[in-house]
Design a protein around this nucleic acid. Structure first.
Lengths: 208, 208
DNA sequence: GTCTATATTCTGATAGAC
DNA sequence: GTCTATCAGAATATAGAC
């Protein structure tokens, strides 16, 4: 199950700082976040941030690595299960991801924006166990291609399309809302519609 | 035709600064760009940036507004033409956008990242003439729905899917390349494949 | 562990000579 | 219009008292 960490109740000072940092970093990004903002948000003293985390940069790295790995791992956990059919996987991924992102809508833009700066350095520190997940899914995907269920031979296109259809509207949200005079509940309504339709669209696409 | 402004040869000092600013802002974003970087990139003196543009913020606003409006207008120009069928529009948009973004791959992430900060303030300054374009396209789309060519009744879903399939891979590029051990020419190869396939996928989706 | 006060650094902007 | 030198402000990090 995809579970956000932002809902845990922080107890210790260290956890309070981390939770506050997550909130502020998600909203404003590293560059525009001042350690003072984190101190205010958490209600603790400014100096304690450096006492517990040594620097703003180190605190940030902890937050973004946790966010990235939980975001990626939660897809991989679904993809890796050999018992689940591809069609079911699609439904699970679409539904749980849209729900997650509606709860924490800043995450996709946060990841995209922050990864722009030092992607290689950051991604090198990610404990990725992609290999097994990829191989399980590739095998399953290849079988579907071989048996004629899916026409598109490249699983990368499949994944780009799937994740893109889920995530892109959230990334483009400001532009989308402005250009079409949507308020936030209009927008969320559209995303709810997509939970049902993306699996249908994906199926039709991959048949073509 | 979609034409990037980044290829113009700058003559005057003012244009040199603008071109350099565009390059550096695209690459690093507003926050990480120092006026000193722009001065170096353009080969002009630091003080001249303020002489010609008064502030870093004003220079930035000029760049991002130009980028946004040219990016948006170039879609609208295609959508607004009543002579072109929807199918042809899709092909034109897909093909010319992918080519444009391969030439200037930082633009999508630049727009997404920078629009996170003050979207309303910025978008309010955009001279949008969305109305006519939207109404022409909506009409054409509605006709296609009524005559049974397209099943998906909401043109917003159509546009989100179309633009998302084009743009999302570029936004997710660092993650995508890392997770699949792609180099830049592998990546561009994938995008070239998408020029042919997106129109087919879109057609299949909208039929479903 | 927590606080106040301060040192340090970085960077946008400008004064003033040419 | 262009340059050098410098100022002013902001923000991270730390020293040192409690």
């Amino acid at each position: 199950m995809i579970q956000s960490k932002a809902l845990k109740k922080p107890d210790t000072t260290e956890e309070k700082i981390k939770e506050a940092a997550r909130i502020v970093f998600y909203r404003k990004g590293y560059a525009y976040t001042r350690t003072r903002d984190i101190a205010e948000e958490s209600g603790i003293n400014l100096a304690l941030i450096n006492y517990y985390f040594r620097s703003k940069a180190r605190l940030f790295e902890i937050i973004i690595l946790e966010t990235l790995s939980s975001f990626i791992e939660s897809i991989l956990e679904i993809l890796i299960d050999e018992q689940t059919s591809i069609e079911t996987k699609i439904q699970i991924i679409v539904s749980s991801y849209i729900d997650l992102i509606i709860k924490e809508p800043e995450i996709p833009t946060f990841i995209v924006s922050e990864l722009r700066n030092n992607p290689n350095e950051l991604l090198a520190k990610l404990p990725l166990r992609h290999k097994t997940a990829r191989s399980v899914f590739s095998k399953q995907y290849k079988e579907a291609v071989d048996s004629g269920i899916i026409k598109e031979p490249n699983p990368l296109h499949f994944l780009m399309n799937l994740i893109g259809m889920i995530v892109f509207p959230f990334i483009a949200k400001p532009l989308l809302m402005k250009a079409n005079n949507l308020n936030i509940s209009d927008f969320n309504q559209l995303m709810q519609e997509r939970k049902k339709r993306i699996p249908i669209w994906i199926k039709a696409m991959m048949d073509a």
